[in-house]
Structures are given as C-alpha cells and as structure tokens.
Design a protein around this nucleic acid. Structure first.
Length: 455
RNA sequence: GAGGGUAUAGCUCAGUAGGUUAGAGCGACAGUUUGUGGCACUGUAGGUCGUGGGUUCGAGACCCAUUACUCUCCCCA
C-alpha cells in the first residue's frame, strides 16, 4: 500500500487556509456586486473543441483533456485506435477526448454569451469565481488547479467600462490592504509599432520579444529581433520605444511623437488618455502605470490591456485582463465587444501570506468548549450548549469524559477562548463555571446567566 | 519541452572518509497530578533510510536506473 497523495500542483486547504481564502473571495465578490456585476457559474468541463485553439499553441498543450470512458460503439474501434496513435504524437482528437477541464473563465463565458445572446440584456456584466485547471509544470505561484475571479462586460464599446474595471482593481486591493500597481497598455499601440517596424504580420514576434525585456535585457532582445528579421533601423525604433520613460503623461507624449501619424497609435494613445484622465478625477490615477512593454499572452485582446503587480513582492502578475472586440466571434456570434479582468486568488493569497496582511480576526472557530465530566453532567451541558448555539455562538462539547488536562489542551490547540465546566458540584446547584483561557479568570454563574454571558 | 535540487520517525531535519544495535528536536501517548490547562521532569510507541539494481567483506552514505516532490527557464494567474 503506497502512501496516499494528491496530484501534482493541487492542494488541500485546512481550516485556517479556507478562512483566509474565503476572506479574499468574499472581498472580491462584494466589490464585483457593488459594481453591478451578476454571478455566473459554468461547468468544470467543456467540450474540447470549445477550448482548443483559443489560447495559442502553447495554451492548447496545457489544456487538461478528459479521456473518454471507453468505446461507445464497437464499430468505431479502428477509428479509435487511429485516434490513440494521434495522441501518442501529441495531437488531440475527439475520438479519444471529447471533453476537457476549463483553462480559464473567459472562453467559457464567451461560449455562454454566444449560446444565450438572444436572451441576455446588453451590456451584460457578469462575474465568475471558480477553479480552472492547467497541465502546467507547477512551481512557485503556479498550480495545476487554481481559482480565477473574472469580471467582464460584453456588449459595450464604451471606455467607461475600462475605467470601471480599474476602479474595481483599486477598490478590491485597497480592501485587501495590498499595495499594487496596475499596468496598462494598448494592443493598438503594439500593432502600430509592428506596422512601423515591418508589418502587422510581425506583431506576435515583436510582442514576444519585447515582453522579455525585463528578464533578459535589451541586448538579447535585440539578438532575437535580428533573427526574426527586423533591420537596424527598425530595431532602433523599437529601442527608442522601449526606453520611453517618465510620468504617464510624458510617456504618452513621447510615444505619440515616435509613432506620429499612425492611425492605430493615435487611437490607442487616445484610449489610454481617456482612462487616465477619468481616474485623475477619481484619485485613482496614482495606481496606474502606462507600460508599453506589457504584451500579455492571450491573443484575443484587441484594445487596452491590464496587468496587476503587487508592489515589493517576488510574484508574477496577480491579475490581468483587457478588451477583446470579437471574442464571441469565435463561436459564430459577431459584434459582441467586451472587456474583462481577472484576479489570481491563489497568488494574492501567497502574497498576503508572505507580507502578513491577513487580518487577525478572520479565523472564526469555536468560541466555547463545554467540558465533559460524566454522563449526567454532559447531558446537562448539552442543553446549555444548545441555548448558546441558538444565539449563534459557536460551541462544542468534548465528546469523551476525560481528564481536565486533556480537555484543556484540546481547547488550547483549537484556540477556543472560553470553556464551561459543569461538574457534579455545579450540576447540583444548577450552575456552571465559565473560564476565560487567555486571562485565567473564571466565574460560577447560573444557567440563565450563561445564556446571556457572551452577548 | 530544457535544466538544477531533494527523498532518513507523524513533522522539521542530523547522520561527519562507506564500519557493530539508525539519532535529535517538536508532536503523539502515558505518568508525576482522579475538579483547573499553558511550565517542568520521567517514560512509551513509532523507521524494510522513496523504489529497483550494482560496487564492496560490509551501503542510509558510492554508482546506474526509476518514481515522487520542489525550484528555475519557456509560458502564465
């Protein structure tokens, strides 16, 4: 018999952890609802074809596929064996796997909107907080099962939505007391840069290269650009682009000069200005940082993109999102533009834990332990305990008649602040002894007094 | 997909150049103390040293393979 274990990249959550996670989830949920978003839940599994091809080539490999439950029709045996050979070559096929675990919440949401667009009221604002799965190699801050919390608005092109989503980030992280920076960029600006430097078809090569800047440095980025066919003059423009610095306003002004005359650039800059100006008024502009190196992997983004970094923490992004003008187009429903953001709960958890930012009050366990001092005594204690429970005070009784020592230790281990002793002496007098474990003080009071003792 | 690191008691780890019966701390359990905990002291239980092979008179230690975990890169939340 081997030792029990759980799959790589998954975790059990003990009581303390669950309380802390609930605290994060409830905080975010409350913010979402305050901003007028409605909940949605979708199945853990989707049809494979719903997910395939939506996350790029790398993403496809990371989708957890679910093996079909054997052969439904004996006539398909040959076909299925061919399918198995494909799997061995690393390809996927519905003869072997028809379903897959969801990889994020955005594509299932797009699928939902496409299926229900006739009955939804637009603009449609939904939030969703559910686990997603990725067949990734786990490491720090990266799991195979983790929660995402998404808020999206579809059916509206207004930039007020972008403004609103930034407000959500600021409000939520303020509530969690976590200092963050919200990085913003615009895919239109990246597109403009690609046009100026050799054409739109180089957009992906370009974004991949510049995304690596802070990791590998300019020289290696330059080397990569060379191999991708960017000439010296183009590299020089890219270099200037990447070195734009200063305040958000200064950056945008310099960018406008560099990409002067490009239609997409003008539009992209205008959009960023809109959001920044709006937040000048709300006072939230200080959380926003224009970062033209921000690219984000998911290729369905078309407008403003976001990424949230915790200040002074060794952790990848703890949230991200952006505008996609044609997401449901993937499912045959056109003209449903949208914009959304996501919170990475598990990483937020890790950062809060590391920086010790969880409030001390969130672990609400048992408040009162009733000692068990014999059959009669326990029966009497049970009735008193139920009185307290009716008043919504968390209580429990020690199930075995044990020595004081043991019952005290149990209370300490569980951080139970009060104990109630009903022994033979108390029982005879219809009284009980209440002791505060932290202070060591104790009082002997009547049963009636006990009922109101913790009010 | 590429490359590191680790694997010894329930937990955290020692184990020195290969040498008798495998160690500590914490935890658990019991006792000193049968109606008052935290402290202290005493004792008890618990390990085919991840697995398989090899080298050797002798392997927890060295070599090979394998599995699991972990970290970095790629990519991402």
């Amino acid at each position: 018999m081997s030792k029990p274990s759980i799959p790589q990249g998954t975790r059990d959550f003990n009581a303390a952890t669950v309380h802390k996670r609930q605290y994060i989830l409830n905080t975010i949920k409350h913010v979402f609802e305050t901003f007028g978003f409605q909940p949605l839940e979708t199945p853990a599994m989707e049809n494979l074809e719903t997910l395939m091809g939506k996350y790029g080539e790398e993403g496809d490999k990371l989708i957890f596929k679910i093996l079909n439950n054997g052969l439904d029709n004996p006539a398909k045996e040959v076909q299925t064996k061919e399918g198995f050979d494909k799997i061995l070559q690393g390809k996927s096929t519905t003869t072997i796997t028809e379903r897959a675990l969801r990889y994020d919440l955005t594509i299932p949401f797009a699928r939902y909107v496409a299926m229900n667009h006739g009955s939804l009221t637009f603009p449609f604002k939904r939030y969703q907080m559910q686990p997603v799965w990725r067949a990734d190699r786990p490491q720090k801050g990266r799991y195979r099962e983790f929660y995402q919390c998404d808020a999206d608005i579809v059916g509206s092109e207004s930039l007020i939505n972008e403004v609103d989503l930034v407000s959500i980030y600021v409000t939520a992280f303020k509530a969690l007391q976590l200092p963050v920076t919200i990085k913003v960029n615009n895919r239109k600006i990246l597109l403009a840069l690609a046009q100026v430097c050799g054409g739109e078809d180089k957009l992906i090569d370009l974004t991949i290269a510049i995304d690596k800047l802070d990791k590998i440095g300019w020289e290696k980025v330059q080397a990569e650009l060379s191999t991708k066919g960017f000439n010296d003059q183009q590299q020089s423009v890219i270099h200037t682009y990447l070195n734009i610095a200063g305040t958000n306003q200064e950056k945008l002004t310099k960018l406008a000069e560099l990409l002067a005359g490009n239609e997409h650039a003008n539009k992209g800059i205008e959009e960023l200005n809109f959001v920044l100006n709006y937040h000048q008024a709300t006072g939230m502009a200080s959380f926003i940082e224009a970062d033209f190196t921000l690219a984000r992997g998911l290729n369905y983004y078309t407008g403003i993109i976001f990424e949230v970094k915790a200040n002074d923490a060794q952790m990848g992004s703890i949230g991200g999102g952006g505008r996609y003008d044609d997401l449901t187009g993937l499912f045959g429903v056109n003209n449903v533009p949208g914009v959304g953001i996501s919170f990475g709960v598990d990483r937020i958890f890790d950062v809060l834990e590391e920086k010790q930012l969880f409030p001390a009050t969130i672990e609400a366990g048992t408040q009162v332990l009733f000692f068990n001092l014999g059959e009669q005594e326990a029966a009497a204690a049970y009735l008193q305990m139920m009185q307290l429970r009716n008043k919504k005070i968390a209580c429990e009784i020690y199930p075995e008649k044990s020595k004081f020592d043991k019952q005290f230790k149990y209370a300490e281990k569980k951080n139970i602040p009060h104990i109630v002793i009903i022994g033979s002496e108390e029982l005879a007098a219809s009284k009980c002894t209440v002791k505060n474990l932290a202070s060591g003080q104790q009082n002997t009071i009547s049963f009636e007094e006990l009922t109101n003792y913790f009010d």
